[in-house]
Lab assay of single mutants.
Amino acid sequence: PPDDERKKAEKAARSGNEEKAREILERLGYSEDEARELAKRLR
């Protein structure tokens, strides 16, 4: 489910793995720019 994926992205971002967070968010349908912004904010 998307919620689980989003949680994974948050966890990745918090542990400093912004790249992985961005990949997950892009898979969820965010654009590259949106995903980058979100990954930064989740950190």
Rank of each mutant, 00 (worst) to 15 (best):
E23N: 06
R27L: 10
K8R: 11
K8E: 15
K7M: 13
S15Q: 14
R41P: 01
A35I: 06
K40G: 07
R6Y: 15
K11Q: 15
D4I: 12
E34F: 05
R43K: 11
R36C: 03
L25T: 00
A9W: 07
A21Y: 05
K20T: 08
E23Q: 11
D4N: 10
A12H: 11
A35D: 01
E23P: 02
A13S: 04
R36G: 03
L25D: 00
N17Y: 08
A35V: 03
A9E: 03
G29M: 01
P2C: 12
A39R: 01
N17M: 07
R6G: 04
A12G: 04
I24D: 01
N17A: 06
A13N: 02
A21Q: 02
G16D: 05
G16F: 05
P2F: 15
L42D: 02
I24M: 05
E23Y: 07
A35R: 01
R43I: 10
R27M: 10
A9L: 05
A21C: 05
D4R: 10
E18Y: 12
N17H: 10
L25V: 00
D3Q: 10
P2N: 13
A12F: 15
K40Q: 12
R22V: 13
E32V: 12
N17Q: 08
E19S: 09
E32W: 07
K40V: 07
A39G: 01
R36M: 08
R27T: 08
P2W: 15
R36N: 05
E26D: 01
A35Y: 02
G16M: 05
K8I: 10
E19K: 13
E18M: 15
E10V: 13
R6I: 15
A9F: 03
E26T: 09
E10L: 12
S15V: 06
K11F: 13
Y30S: 01
A39M: 07
A13P: 03
E5L: 15
P2Y: 14
P2A: 15
N17E: 09
E23M: 08
E26I: 15
G16T: 02
E34N: 05
A39E: 04
R43P: 02
G16V: 02
K11V: 14
S15Y: 07
Y30M: 09
E23F: 06
A39L: 14
G29F: 02
K40I: 08
N17K: 06
S15H: 10
E23L: 11
E18S: 05
S31V: 00
E5W: 13
A13K: 03
E10F: 12
A12I: 06
A9Y: 05
E32R: 12
E23C: 11
L25N: 00
Y30Q: 00
E19Y: 07
R14P: 02
P1Q: 14
K7T: 13
I24S: 01
K8V: 09
G16I: 04
A12S: 05
D33R: 10
E37S: 08
I24T: 01
A12V: 06
E34A: 10
A9Q: 02
